[in-house]
Amino acid sequence: MLAWLAELSPHFGPLNLFRYITFRTGGAVFTALFFVFFFGPRIIAALRLKQGKGQPIRLDGPASHLLTKKGTPTMGGLMILSGLIVSTLLWANLRNHYVWIVLLVMTGFGMIGFYDDYLKVTRQTHAGFSGRLRLALEACIALLACFLMTHFGTAHTTSISFPAVNGYIADLGLFFVVFGAFVIVAAGNAVNLTDGLDGLAIVPVMIAAGTFGIISYLAGNAIFSTYLGINFVIGAGELAVVCGALIGAGLGFLWFNAPPAQIFMGDTGSLALGGLLGTIAVAAKHEMVLVIVGGLFVLEAVSVIVQVASFKLTGKRVFKMAPIHHHFEQLGWSESQVVVRFWIIAFVLALIGLSTLKLR
């Protein structure tokens, strides 16, 4: 919204700052941060009042969770999403179609997660609504988003690229819509599976957002993209503002989610933020880099798939408990050890992902 002020710069020079994505990204970070700081306590109090017993805890999970986490309110994703949306609408260029597509996916996935959290809280059960129905709804939203990208996009919108390879390697045509939707849905559910310990999901999400903020900015800049040998995507640079808003909202949420957590983000937040990251990766044409940068989320998802497949096929479990962060808890790691060490892994993977920009 504030981007239009740049049009008044001939009359007042300092307004030219609003022309720069970097300036507006910084503004988005601080706006989202202070929004969550200011409204966070009020949202937590309202959710605690409405939810009563809070989020139900898995009975088959670590015993310590039943004692320390029982009664903690969930749906804290509402704090993150509200701060992110307000900040994005304020600082992003609303003429950019990528901004609206990302907000569409984030809001849609957030609504699915909210309904799932609502059922868990009201029924006091760890199970929400049908997994197949949830995946179907996510797929519909993701397919619509990818269709809109191909409709409003420019050349090579339906093409894919790989790290360390110059240019695009294949044009998927209409199949790109399916491929992109798979990336978005997979990212949403991978982040959802990671959200199991205080602060475990939100910091890697912020690290990934910072990484893709840089990637989006570079991909959307003709000079930088040419220098680095990455594909130029017109309009992708504006997604850096969205990533900045996510980082600010995430920092504000972490203030309240740090151990011992006052609130959990719930499926409301994890599904929405994962879907947002997946959509940005697809829009910036760095879908494969998301596998590296979001490697921690991939590991969590794969651990669940392997555990379920192994148990169904052989009757034996590969891990003591899945997702894999619970496996390490069962091995004797404290919650803080698991969380901080997983943060370190996420940071290292982000650096590896960024290094691929120059390996061409």
Rank of each mutant, 00 (worst) to 15 (best):
A283E: 12
L148F: 14
S303D: 09
F256P: 10
D198K: 08
I207C: 00
Q51F: 07
F152C: 02
I101S: 08
L351C: 11
L218F: 14
I141T: 13
M265E: 10
A63Y: 02
T25K: 01
L104M: 15
G295R: 05
L135I: 15
L144C: 08
I184W: 09
G77K: 12
Y20N: 10
G295F: 07
P10N: 10
M79Y: 11
F212L: 01
L218R: 03
Q51I: 09
T150I: 08
F30I: 15
L254T: 01
P204C: 02
A209C: 04
G61C: 02
A245K: 06
V306L: 15
F34C: 01
L67E: 14
I247N: 00
T31N: 00
L67F: 04
K50P: 01
T88E: 12
S355N: 05
G131L: 07
F311V: 03
A245Q: 11
L357A: 01
L143A: 12
R317K: 12
L84V: 09
L47E: 08
F264E: 07
D171A: 08
F23T: 04
G199M: 08
R123I: 05
V298K: 00
G199W: 08
T150P: 00
G61T: 05
G180V: 09
G269A: 09
L104W: 14
D267K: 11
I57K: 04
A136W: 13
S355W: 07
L246Y: 05
S64M: 11
K70Y: 01
G199Y: 05
I44G: 03
A236G: 07
I324K: 06
G353A: 01
H286S: 09
M106T: 15
E138G: 02
F147K: 13
V291A: 15
R42K: 07
F147C: 13
T279W: 04
H65T: 01
I44V: 14
N192I: 13
W333V: 07
A32Y: 13
T125I: 12
I202S: 03
F328N: 04
Q55Y: 09
G220W: 04
L273E: 09
M75A: 05
G275I: 05
G199H: 05
L8N: 08
Y217P: 01
A240C: 05
A261S: 14
G248F: 06
G167A: 05
T72F: 11
L197K: 07
E287P: 10
T68W: 04
Q55W: 10
R123E: 08
V205S: 00
V241S: 04
A281F: 04
N257C: 12
L133N: 06
V86E: 08
Q124M: 02
C243G: 11
R42H: 04
S225M: 06
A46D: 01
A92S: 15
F328H: 02
I160C: 09
V29D: 02
G248K: 09
M206H: 05
A346T: 10
V105H: 00
A350P: 10
V306A: 12
W343R: 07
K312Y: 11
I280S: 08
Q262I: 00
G196Y: 03
I215G: 00
G248C: 08
F23C: 02
L49P: 00
P62Y: 03
E138R: 00
F297K: 06
H286Q: 15
K70A: 14
K358A: 14
V102K: 09
H286V: 11
H151N: 13
G353C: 06
A201S: 15
